[in-house]
Design a protein around this nucleic acid. Sequence first.
DNA 1: GGCGAATTTAGCACCAGGTCATAAGCGGCG
DNA 2: CGCCGCTTATGACCTGGTGCTAAATTCGCC
Lengths: 201, 201
Amino acid sequence: MRLSKEARRAALQAYLRENPFVTDEALAEHFGVSVQTIRLDRAALGIPEMRDRVRAVAERLFQNVTSLAEEEFIGTLVALELDRRAASTLTITPVHTFRRSRIARGHVLFAQANALAIAVAPAPAALTRRAEIDYLAPVTLGDTVEAVATVVERPKPNRRVVRVEGAVGGKPVFTGVFRVALLRAEEFTGEAEGMGRAHRR
Amino acid sequence: MRLSKEARRAALQAYLRENPFVTDEALAEHFGVSVQTIRLDRAALGIPEMRDRVRAVAERLFQNVTSLAEEEFIGTLVALELDRRAASTLTITPVHTFRRSRIARGHVLFAQANALAIAVAPAPAALTRRAEIDYLAPVTLGDTVEAVATVVERPKPNRRVVRVEGAVGGKPVFTGVFRVALLRAEEFTGEAEGMGRAHRR
DNA sequence: GGCGAATTTAGCACCAGGTCATAAGCGGCG
DNA sequence: CGCCGCTTATGACCTGGTGCTAAATTCGCC
């Protein structure tokens, strides 16, 4: 016997984790068993068919990319008065930190602040034109950063200057100033790009 | 006629850009035409069938499962002379952009620049203390950003001022100045990070 | 209103990659 | 030997298509 049933099933799980988009036929060949056996294994393990696996991956990942404006946010929006102020919180998890020092990476806090500056902008979309950020104290694993953005200047109808301050337990950890440009809806209607090419057969 | 052929095809392209996972049948219903007409339209526009669209999305995004924040180094390090200069490239994929505008989010470019500033620092780890970044032109989906970091000042033995310039096809898209603090190993419980190794993408 | 061309719809055969159910083969072992 | 666990085979059916042909409809134009 090439592999015991249990061993094969364990291997199958592992293999599919790494290569989610293989057909039963390819799996059968890979494990030296028949397609039917693979199907039995999948059924026993509750693994859906390839098309469903592909679709699940695609949908989950597409959601990340395509999520609505409020989900594009880094951190959790806790207050928003358009064109006035906004606030968010972000709890630092291991994915946000340098592995060894457990200090949050600069760009994570920048992202929280930048997202907040864009969220407070009274427009369907906004672009950052300039940012200055001062890191006052390191933020470490487990900290919850409370950030507050305040519109401090409106130099032109479509420009805003936003000050963002971040604190952990009341102690300031960063401050930043973001100059953003407001966009009207028609300024970001992208152009086609083709979905790819047909193939097969 | 509900919509002229050309109008329908344009609408179809746009619709599929936002909803890539729709079957021909759903499209036919949506546009009030027969499934066959949708197929003709897809053929004329070179749009592959739904399964292929799903698959393309899934495969393209699968490599990026590691969310932005999880990556050690944002971009691919292509050159490094410690305490002098460093360079990286970053190709903008959908995960880096706003969904509708397809413009790279500010924090993505910040992250590339910041990672580079930290990588060039001659220390096992470094922290950003202050950053200024100017966005000169929008960076869009598919662009490859070439960033170069240069150490421009060494105000103290453990401080560096790094200028980072980003360009797409030779055209500047951002410039930034990062002031970083070098850390000695004993300044945190652990060791290096920041010396980021290149990540494939 | 009539006509030809463009456009749309329909029908049929076929394919991949499955589902589900049923049946048959095989190896080991008590 | 017979039975059990496992594997394999078979056939009917499903979805979301491709490719082709042919018919029906609609448009532009005289």
